[in-house]
Nucleic acid binder design. Structure first.
Lengths: 157, 157
DNA sequence: CTGGATCCTATCTGATACTG
DNA sequence: CAGTATCAGATAGGATCCAG
């Protein structure tokens, strides 16, 4: 019982070149790892944006069609007005959501996914499905990690 | 020129039911929006994890094969030892990365993607490709947003 | 070599109150 | 109704020093 080694497969030992994933590049133009890292920056920015506490839920809510501020707020349980405003602003800034103001009294503001926002749903669906399908595996992994932690504590005393 | 309306398509008006994306469900078991929202929680947790400042880069680095702590650190420009440790710990906790300790002197610790970690690369690749392919659209959207902001400022004075 | 412990800063989030 | 302002608490990230 070698608990320390979770190693499932030896894997072909580190190849120092370009990682396999992320944007595919022209094989004629080999990239250094540093260049590849730089290429990942926009990827991270998008991920950082969509992983805001409320972003996914807002996109999800808007996937049902254009809605007013209060409709969205009602749909999303627990969101504060401040955070919903901020989230919508960020999504608008990046071009995922459109904001339509009707200067009436009282004012009316409608939000909707833009073409790009709807396109974003596809990759989001992929990772969403993956996360949903694997949530139990992650939970189990966390439990095993917690057990190993307690085990380590007991050994320390 | 109706700048306020970015609306590209009217879209079929909000349908109050289940959003179209996220984990597909059995059509025989219609979910309320609240239930669907709850189903998104694990999705968000995974996204929150992989959107840490260094997580993607670590997974990317490890996609080249098992490596020691210092190798990973060398690959990732600018990461502090503290954050790399924390990121690796979190990835280990969720079962994406395995940690192998060789109690020699000096100690040697190898990290590698687990089977689940390698599976994660696929959805990550999808969203990575999307982000990379659309980075210019996002940039343009941000510029247009900044312009609209300045325009609004000028009108305010 | 690896990584824990501390201290410090920046950002995020939430609750409340106020405005057009 | 929609949104801004403010204040306080929680977290993430980083720098540095110490230890097995």
């Amino acid at each position: 019982m070698d608990d320390l080694v979770t190693h499932t497969e030896p894997q072909p030992a580190a190849t120092p070149g370009t990682p396999s994933w992320a944007p595919q590049h022209d094989p004629k133009e080999p990239e250094t790892f540093a260049e590849c890292t730089r290429a990942m920056v926009p990827v991270h920015e998008v991920l950082a944006q969509i992983s805001g506490k409320w972003t996914i839920l807002v996109v999800q809510a808007l996937s049902a069609g254009p809605q007013r501020f209060s409709e969205i707020k009602r749909r999303i349980d627990g969101v504060s007005q401040k955070m919903l405003t901020a989230t919508l602003r960020d999504l608008e800034k990046d071009g995922f959501v459109s904001r339509t103001v009707t200067p009436s009294i009282p004012p009316r503001v409608d939000y909707a996914l833009t073409e790009m926002g709807r396109e974003l749903q596809e990759p989001l669906k992929v990772i969403g499905n993956w996360a949903h399908a694997n949530r139990h595996r992650v939970e189990e992994a966390r439990e095993r990690f917690a057990e190993r932690e307690e085990e380590a504590k007991r050994l320390a005393w």
